[in-house]
Each structure stands twice: as structure tokens, then as C-alpha cells.
């Protein structure tokens, strides 16, 4: 087990538990006809989370250090795809489903492995148009179709 990661997580969960406790104090305490207000359950859970985080923090002291086995990670590939996904989500309603999906998939395919560009384009086009046709035309679903400035 990774000592640093678990310490970070323990502190984060500790803060989260404390935050929920503090914030639940601001929730109205009374509920008509009920002895227990909406603040009790989250407060108790926050308290339990704080205790558990402290327990985890104490447990990390017993971890042995010799576990760090560095493996190669494809951070670059991942970042490109993740940032592309963020742009995909952000532009979805403005530019429409078909174009954003097509672009995201082409970028995704090419990032995973360069080459065979035409195959990527064909697959991305058939997926984005296929989903759009099936969902919007056949099943009458709602998707932002084309760029807003086209309409």
C-alpha cells in the first residue's frame, strides 16, 4: 500500500468529514412532526468519517516503505484524451452532438495509436451519425443536433 497516497486521502476525508459536520450545523434543526431534523444524519456520518480518517492516518504509520515499484504510466495519452473529453462536454450544447462526438473520437483513436487515419474517421463518423440517427430520429430522443449558429 502506498503511504503517501493514503495519507493524502486520509487528510482529505478528514477535511470532508469535518466540512459535512460544520455545514450540517447550518441546516435547520427542526422538522415538523419529527423528533429528528435533517441535520442529524449527515452530522453523525461526518463524525464517523472523521474517526475513520484518523484510524487510516494511524494505520499508515505501520506501512512498510519498500513498496514503491514505479511503473510506466501513459500520462500524456491520458491527458490528451481527458482534456479532449472536457472540451467535448463543454462544447456539446453549442456545437452539437454529431460534430463534437466525431472530433472527440478521431482525437481519441489517433491518440491511442497513430496511423490508419481514414479508418478512424470512418469509425468516428459512423458512430456519431449512427447514435444520432438511432436516438434522435428513431427513438425521438433529445440531443443538441447541429451548431446553434446553423439553425
Amino acid at each position: 500500500m502506498n503511504k503517501t497516497a493514503d495519507r493524502i486521502a486520509a487528510v482529505a476525508f478528514l477535511a470532508l468529514g469535518a466540512l459535512f459536520m460544520v455545514e450540517s450545523l447550518r441546516i435547520s434543526k427542526s422538522a415538523y412532526g419529527s423528533a429528528v431534523g435533517p441535520n442529524v444524519f449527515p452530522f453523525l456520518l461526518g463524525l464517523v468519517l472523521v474517526f475513520l480518517s484518523i484510524k487510516l492516518l494511524l494505520e499508515t504509520r505501520r506501512y512498510s516503505e519498500a513498496t514503491s515499484e514505479k511503473q510506466a504510466r501513459q500520462y500524456k495519452k491520458f491527458l490528451v484524451i481527458f482534456i479532449a473529453a472536457i472540451f467535448y462536454a463543454g462544447l456539446l450544447e453549442m456545437v452539437g452532438y454529431v460534430i463534437t462526438t466525431f472530433l472527440f473520437l478521431v482525437i481519441g483513436f489517433q491518440t491511442m495509436e497513430k496511423g490508419a487515419l481514414w479508418k478512424s474517421i470512418a469509425l468516428a463518423a459512423s458512430f456519431s451519425l449512427g447514435v444520432y440517427g438511432l436516438y434522435v430520429k428513431l427513438l425521438q430522443g433529445t440531443l443538441p443536433s447541429w451548431p446553434i449558429w446553423f439553425q
Partner: peptide, 17 residues
């Protein structure tokens, strides 16, 4: 290489739909 980007696209489509 085709499967993984497609799963992301399906997830985003599903949640948005």
C-alpha cells in the same frame, strides 16, 4: 485503441441523454 474512446463516448452520450 478503438474500444476505449468509444466507451468514453458511450458514457457521455448515456449520461447526457
Amino acid at each position: 485503441k478503438y474500444l476505449l474512446p468509444l466507451i468514453i463516448a458511450i458514457s457521455i452520450f448515456g449520461v447526457y441523454a
